[in-house]
Design a binder for these strands. Structure first.
Lengths: 396, 396
DNA sequence: GTGAATTGTTGTTTACTACAACTTATCTCA
DNA sequence: TGAGATAAGTTGTAGTAAACAACAATTCAC
C-alpha cells in the first residue's frame, strides 16, 4: 500500500475526503436498511451530483444497489431507494458455556442463517475454536459465488483487550489470557474482531433496536452469569482505556451485601440475580424460558417479594448510572427486561426518588428489541466496521 | 453567509476540509502552547507544503505566530516554532457564593489577568450580572488595540443546559431557571458560553494539567458545596443528553447514610464532606486554606479517623466509576486531592480490593495541577471553542 | 570546507466536490 | 388531457485544496 495516509492522522487530504464521504453514505444506508438518494443528499449536505457519483461508486463496488421507490404521492422525479448490498456478509460468533452460536449476517444487520452448535461439557479453548471454525466452514461452503465474507465478529462473554483481541478473562468459560482472535483467524483465514458481549449488544440496540436515534444510552443485560452493560455516548461506544467500561454488574448497591466473585461486596450482580428469581418462582435452571412469564404474572408472594427486592437494588445502580452518564435511554435485556416490564412505573418511581429531577426529564426505560439476534447483529457490526469506515478498500 | 455547509452535516467538501485542517493545526498549537512546524507535519500527516500554506494562513489571521526555535543540536534546516497568537483573548467567568472571578485568558490557556469581585451577601442574578459585566468592561477597556476578545466562557456551579446556556439550578447561589448566558450577552455584547464548573474543570486538566495525553479520565472536585465531576472519553467531554453527566457527588456510597439535598440517601457528598473535615481538624470555615495542611499532617486522631472514614466512602465511589468507565486517570481537585495525598497507597489499595484487576492495571490516581486557575482556563476553553473548531471565521 | 540530513518554498499536477444547465418523472389543475 | 410546477437525476465545467517534485536553505559531522 503506497499511501501512508490513514484515518489515524489528524489531517485530511482529498482521498481521505472521498473515503469519509463514501463511509458516511454507506453507514447511512446500512443503519437505515435503505433510503432514498434524495434523503442521502439532505442528510450528508453534499451536492446532488456528488451523491450521484458516490452512490454510483458504491454500486460499482456492489456495496449497495438501487431500486425503484414505492410511489410517494409527491411531485417531482422519484428518487431511487439505495439498499445495502446483499453480497457483503459477516460471520457473527457468540461462544457460551453450553454452545457456540454462529450467524451469517448481511449489511443492514439482517441475520440470514443461524447455527447453534451445542457442547456436551464446558468447552476448552481448542474445542470451542474447532467447533466455531467447522460451523464457519459449513456456512462459507454454502455461499453463492458472488457473496463475500468481509470478516468475523465475536461477542465474547468476558473481558477482551481491544486491538489484538486477547481474551483477558472469560470467567464462565474458564478462559484466561486466550488469544481467541488470533486462534480463530489462523483457522478460518478471515479478519476476526472481538468485543465484550454487552459492548456488542449496546451497539446493536443502538443501531437497530430500542436505541435507534438515541445518542446517549446505556444497555444492561441480565443473564445466567451476571449483569453486563454497555455505554453509548455521542452515538459512540464508550470502551474506556482497556475496553472494560460498562461493568455495571460490579457497581456497589449494598455495602452490607454478599461477596462477589470479583472480590468486592454487594455488587449489583450479587443482589440482582436470575438464580434467585428462578428459586423464588420455583423453577429449575432449565426452565429459564418460563421465568419471564412467571415474573410478569407475579405467580407467588415469594417471587413478587424477590422481584421487588431486586428492583430496589437495580434502582440504586440506575441512580448511579444516571447521575454519572445522564443518558437519554436505558435499555434492558434478559431478565432485567422482565424486572422492568412487571411494573415500569414502580421502577421509574424508585429511580426518580434518588436522582436529580432534571436528569430524569427526558429519560426512557425500555426493553431490548432485538431478542435472540442481538449478539449476532452486534458481532456482525464488529466485522463490518472496516468496510463501513473505508469502503474504498472493498470491491465485491 | 452564503455557504449552507457547516460541520453538522455528515459530508465533507473542500471548504470543510480546509476548515478541519486549519482547526487541527490551531488545536495542536493551542494545546501544546507552541511546537515546531515539522512536528505539525508529522502529527497531522499532511504534506510539508500543505502545512506551510495552512500555517501561513493562520499567521495571516494572527491566530499564531512563528519564531526561531531553540537550537536542537540536530542536522538539517531548523524548523520554526509555531506559537499561539497573543491577540486572541477570552474572558473567563466563575461566579461563586461570595465572589465572582473574571479572568483574561490567551490561547494556550495562559491566564493574563484575574480580577475577583467580592460580594457582601449572596448575590441575586442581577447583581451578579452587573458585577461581572463591569469587571469585563474594566478588562476590555485596558486592551491594546490589536487585542480581540473572541468570547466569554462561564464556569457555573450548577446544572446548565447546553445549547442556550440556561442555568437550570445553581443550588448554592439559589438560582433556578436563570438565562445567565443571555443576560450576560445582552450586557457585554460578546458570545457567551456556559458549562458546569466540574465539566469545565475536567477539560482544563485534560488539556493543560494532570490529564495531558490521557484519553480516558475522570476529574473529581471537592468543594465547600459538595463534589462535582467531569468525564473525558476518547479525549472528548461526556456530557450526557442534557449536560448533567459527571454528578459523581450524587452516586450512592452508603444506603444507610444520611439524606442528601437531592432527596436520595447516602450520596458520596453527604458522606465525604469538607465541613466534617474542618470540624475534625478543629478549624472554622474561614480557615479552609489550612485544611489541606492539617489533613496531610494528620494533626489529630479525630481528623485521621474522619479522613480514613471518608477515604473508604470515596473508594466505593471510585470503584463504581472505574467499573463503569475504565479510565486511565482519575484526577482529584479541592480537598479530595488531600484525601488522596495523605496516603495514596491506602486509597489505591482500597480501590484495588473492589475492582476487577485488569481495570486497575493502567490507572493512575493523581492530584489536579492547575490550582486556582483551573476554572478560568476551562471557562476560557468554552469561549475559544468556536475559534478552534473554525479558524476560517476569525481574522484578528 | 564538503557532504549528508532535514526542512522550508515554489510551481505543477491530481483529485474531489460544487455549480449550472439540462433532462426526466411525477403531480395538479384547468 | 395537456401545460405548468416541482423535485430530483445527469452531465460537463470550474474551483479549490492537498500532494508531489524539484530546489533552496540551514545545520551538523568529520
Amino acid at each position: 500500500m503506497s499511501n501512508q495516509k490513514r484515518s489515524g492522522d489528524l489531517g485530511t487530504n482529498a482521498e481521505a475526503q472521498r473515503r469519509r464521504n463514501l463511509s458516511a453514505l454507506l453507514r447511512l444506508v446500512h443503519e437505515s436498511r435503505g433510503l432514498q438518494r434524495s434523503t442521502l443528499t439532505r442528510l450528508t449536505g453534499l451536492n446532488r451530483s456528488t451523491v450521484s457519483l458516490l452512490v454510483n461508486e458504491l454500486v460499482d463496488r456492489r456495496l449497495v444497489y438501487e431500486a425503484q421507490s414505492d410511489p410517494t404521492n409527491s411531485v417531482g422525479r422519484p428518487s431511487p431507494t439505495v439498499h445495502p448490498g446483499r453480497n457483503a456478509l459477516a460471520i457473527a460468533v457468540n461462544p457460551e458455556v453450553d454452545a457456540v452460536t454462529v450467524g451469517l449476517v448481511g449489511l443492514g444487520g439482517i441475520v440470514q442463517h443461524r447455527i447453534r452448535h451445542s457442547f456436551a461439557a464446558l468447552p476448552d479453548v481448542h474445542s470451542a475454536i474447532d467447533a466455531t471454525a467447522s460451523v464457519i466452514d459449513q456456512l462459507t461452503v454454502a455461499l453463492n459465488p458472488d457473496e463475500t465474507i468481509v470478516g468475523v465478529g465475536v461477542a465474547m462473554p468476558g473481558l477482551v483487550r481491544p486491538g489484538d483481541g486477547l481474551v483477558r478473562l472469560a470467567p464462565h468459560l474458564g478462559w484466561r489470557e486466550v488469544p481467541f482472535a488470533q486462534l480463530l483467524h489462523d483457522r478460518v483465514m478471515l479478519p476476526v474482531a472481538i468485543a465484550n458481549d454487552a459492548t456488542v449488544g449496546v451497539t446493536a440496540e443502538h443501531m437497530f433496536g430500542a436505541g435507534r436515534g438515541v445518542d446517549e444510552m446505556i444497555y444492561l443485560n441480565g443473564g445466567a452469569s451476571g449483569i453486563g452493560g454497555g455505554i453509548i455516548s455521542a452515538s459512540r461506544n464508550i470502551g474506556g482505556i482497556d475496553g472494560y467500561a460498562g461493568e455495571f454488574g460490579h457497581t456497589s448497591v449494598n455495602p452490607t451485601g454478599s461477596i462477589c466473585e470479583c472480590g468486592a461486596v454487594g455488587c449489583l450482580q450479587t443482589e440482582v440475580r436470575r438464580d434467585r428469581l428462578l428459586a423464588a418462582a420455583g423453577l429449575t435452571d432449565s426452565q429459564n424460558e418460563d421465568l419471564d412469564v412467571a415474573i410478569i404474572e407475579g405467580r407467588s408472594i415469594e417471587l413478587r417479594t424477590e422481584v421487588a427486592r431486586q428492583a430496589s437494588f437495580l434502582a440504586i445502580a440506575l441512580r448511579n448510572a444516571i447521575n454519572i452518564l445522564n443518558p437519554q435511554s436505558i435499555v434492558f435485556g434478559g431478565f432485567l427486561a422482565s424486572l422492568l416490564a412487571v411494573d415500569p412505573k414502580r421502577l421509574r418511581e424508585a429511580v426518580r426518588r434518588q436522582t436529580i429531577e432534571s436528569s430524569l426529564d427526558r429519560l426512557t426505560l425500555s426493553g431490548a428489541q432485538l431478542g435472540a439476534d442481538i449478539l449476532l447483529v452486534g458481532a456482525a457490526g464488529l466485522a463490518f466496521e472496516p468496510l463501513l469506515s473505508d469502503p474504498t478498500a472493498f470491491r465485491l
